[in-house]
Amino acid sequence: MNWGSAGEFFAMGGYGLYVWGSYIACALLMVLEPILTARRHARARREAAHLNEES
């Protein structure tokens, strides 16, 4: 495709909201996933340590 301006590029032929929204959603999930995984891992380690102390 050939765009005449930056505005046309970002509009993506009328599909810009869908295209750029998808990129933003994907980037947000790629940032959140390691954070949430680390939190779940830390919680599991704390729970395992707590169970180990009880036995």
Rank of each mutant, 00 (worst) to 15 (best):
Ser22Phe: 06
Ala11Asn: 11
Leu51Ile: 03
Ala11Tyr: 09
Ala49Pro: 02
Glu33Leu: 13
Arg43Val: 13
Ala49Lys: 02
Ala11Pro: 03
Gly21Met: 00
His41Cys: 09
Trp3Ala: 10
Phe10Gly: 04
Tyr15Val: 07
Met30Val: 13
Met12Arg: 07
Leu32Glu: 05
Val19Phe: 10
Ala49His: 00
Ala49Leu: 14
Ala44Lys: 12
Trp20Ala: 02
Val19Asn: 05
Tyr18Trp: 04
Ser22Val: 03
Arg46Asp: 12
Leu29Cys: 07
Val31Arg: 08
Leu32Ser: 08
Arg45Ala: 14
His41Thr: 15
Gly4Thr: 10
Ala44Leu: 15
Leu36Cys: 13
Tyr15Ser: 10
Ala6Gln: 10
Ala44Asn: 13
Glu8Val: 03
Ile35Gln: 11
His41Phe: 15
Leu32Gly: 03
Gly4Ser: 04
Met1Pro: 10
Tyr23Glu: 09
Leu32Trp: 03
Met30Ser: 14
Ala25Glu: 00
His41Lys: 15
Arg45Tyr: 11
Asn2Ala: 09
Glu8Cys: 04
Val19Met: 08
Ser5Tyr: 09
Glu8Ile: 04
Ala42Glu: 15
Gly7Phe: 10
Leu29Phe: 00
Leu36Gln: 15
Gly14Gln: 02
Glu54Trp: 02
Arg39Val: 14
Val31Lys: 06
Glu47Trp: 08
Phe10Ser: 01
Phe9Thr: 13
Glu33Ile: 14
Ser55Thr: 04
Met30Phe: 12
Gly21Gln: 06
Leu32Arg: 07
Val19Ile: 01
Met1Asn: 11
Trp3Leu: 03
Leu36Arg: 12
Ala42His: 13
Val19His: 14
Ile24Met: 06
Tyr18Arg: 02
Ala11Trp: 02
Leu28Gln: 04
Gly7Ala: 11
Ile35Trp: 04
Arg45Pro: 05
Phe9Gln: 12
Trp3Tyr: 15
Leu51Gln: 04
Val31Pro: 00
Ala11Arg: 03
Leu17Cys: 01
Tyr15Ala: 10
Leu51Ala: 07
Glu53Thr: 03
Tyr23Asn: 06
Ala11Met: 07
Ile24Leu: 05
Arg39Asn: 11
Glu8Asp: 10
Ile24Gln: 10
Leu36Pro: 02
Arg39Pro: 06
Ala42Pro: 03
Ala48Cys: 05
Leu28Pro: 00
Trp3Pro: 03
